[in-house]
């Protein structure tokens, strides 16, 4: 083997990099097209807004991608987002200090992740069913937390100053000219990118998604690995819940509705295989960007919400269809070669 491969040669060998980069190329193309239709798309403020709102999808996408790489799915993401927003804001609106409120919220969400992980990893429930169950339960908790109504403004509990600080930290404040929300997403992304690509646990996540039997026979603890993936998903959802809480200054019972599906879309557009075992988190980042720019751009050019949905739906299906066609194409040619 040639040890002195160029940097590009090495990069070319990284699996899944192609589809990740495709997502970024798509992102840029879509951005330019919308910009050409309406120059406001290119405005500084719009760019800042774009980065802030795509952050939510990046975070959701990271969580869902972790689970998808294990070959499973997490339908409870949106409900965990809602639960996190409700728990944190309920506590704060009752005067519980920010740090304590956040801590309780994180603990509650992680519990959901662990339950999901055990239901799927240990008790072998189909992930679709297991997380469908926790989806309803967590949404139910989000409703019950404040007695079936949205919370009061958090300033009414922790005071205007603290409320401001909380809202700035997660949503309205800027660091180095860019909204904090984006930095939070970026740092979270970097941490989980590192964990997934450079650590033992990360490798185990790919392994159980590729072939759970082979992974187990290679000494991988399948239950713990599944729990870890679902926990990452829950943590990411919590952060989004806090962001939504900060944005509104209060907890909304419906916060995060459908977010689990946005996560699937971001991952799939970025080349994460819904069957597990393949894909890079970098692609998810790009996929979240594509999603957000589509939404933003269609909005800017005045497309109706219905049309937006249709375009987005078509893009998701196209992304996977392309992947399937390419893969089947290579299958067919390989089979043809064999028979020849």
């Amino acid at each position: 083997m040639d040890k002195k491969k160029s940097v590009f040669g090495k990069l070319g060998e990284v699996k899944g990099l192609g589809s990740s980069l495709t997502a970024f190329v798509g992102l840029i193309v879509i951005y330019l097209v919308f910009g050409m239709i309406d120059h406001k798309v290119f405005s500084a403020q719009n760019n800042l807004n774009l980065m802030r709102s795509m952050s939510k999808y990046v975070l959701i996408g990271i969580g869902q991608s972790y689970v998808m790489i294990t070959g499973n799915i997490d339908l409870s993401i949106g409900s965990v987002v809602g639960m996190a927003a409700m728990i944190s804001c309920t506590l704060m609106s009752h005067g519980v200090p920010i740090a304590a409120a956040v801590l309780v919220t994180v603990a509650a969400s992680i519990a959901v992740g662990i339950v999901n992980g055990f239901l799927v990893g240990k008790f072998k429930l189909p992930p679709f069913i297991a997380t469908l169950g926790t989806m309803f339960v967590t949404r139910g908790i989000a409703f019950i937390v404040n007695g079936n109504r949205n919370t009061d403004n958090i300033a009414s509990g922790i005071g205007k100053e603290s409320a401001d600080a909380f809202q700035k930290f997660f949503y309205y404040g800027k660091t180095l000219g860019i909204y904090n929300t984006f930095w939070i997403a970026l740092i979270t992304f970097l941490i989980f990118f590192f964990l997934l690509s450079k650590t033992r646990s990360g490798r185990h996540i790919y392994a159980i998604g590729s072939n759970v039997d082979a992974a187990r026979l290679s000494g991988v603890n399948v239950v713990m690995t599944t729990v870890k993936a679902y926990t990452v998903s829950a943590i990411c959802s919590t952060i989004v819940g806090l962001i939504l809480g900060a944005q509104a200054g209060m907890g909304n019972m419906d916060a995060g509705n459908m977010y689990e599906m946005y996560g699937v879309a971001a991952g799939v557009i970025g080349g994460i295989s819904p069957l597990g075992g393949a894909g890079l988190l970098l692609g998810t980042f790009g996929g979240a960007g594509v999603w957000q720019i589509l939404e933003n751009g269609l909005n800017m050019i005045g497309a109706q919400i219905g049309l937006q949905r249709i375009v987005i739906g078509v893009i998701v299906v196209m992304a996977v269809l392309l992947d399937v066609v390419i893969r089947n194409g290579s299958h067919i040619s390989r089979r043809a070669k064999k028979e020849a």
Partner: peptide, 23 residues
């Protein structure tokens, strides 16, 4: 069925049971 993670690279397959050493 039991031996290989076919979607992973040869390197990752060889490394899989030895991640305790590598890590």
């Amino acid at each position: 069925k039991d031996g290989l993670c076919t979607k992973l690279s040869i390197r990752q397959n060889i490394a899989l049971p030895n991640l305790d050493v590598i890590g």
